[in-house]
Amino acid sequence: MDELVNKTVSVVTSDGRNMMGILQGFDQTSNIILTQCTQNVYIPGQRELEQIPLGSYIIRGTSVTFIGEVDQEKFLSLKIDPALAVGIKSINNR
């Protein structure tokens, strides 16, 4: 995960939230620190993402589903077809 440090990443959590921020650090159990974090909320039926600024966040590893490096250009030219797009489900592992 070293190569993702200081890059803008998108993190999907186990409850289906999608946060975007700059990865500052991580550890063995994939606890992560994000700065300039925003939560990207997709409300079904809409054409755009809603971005909620959150500030700095620590996300516990157990609630991380996946972390991806964001291609900014693609993100800015994002097109959403509201007829097909849905939110991300949560993981029920308890």
Binding site: M1, L4, S10, V12, S14, N18, S30, N40, Y42, L49, G61, T62, V64, T65, F66, I67, G68, E69, V70, D71, Q72, K74, F75, L78, K79, I80, D81, L84, A85, V86, I88, I91, N93
Partner: peptide, 19 residues
């Protein structure tokens, strides 16, 4: 990708094994 267009902008990713 039609279902999750907002995830389409990822280049590479790290997936936690438990998920």
């Amino acid at each position: 990708e039609q279902k999750y267009p907002y995830l389409g902008c990822l280049k590479n990713c790290f997936i936690r094994g438990s998920t």
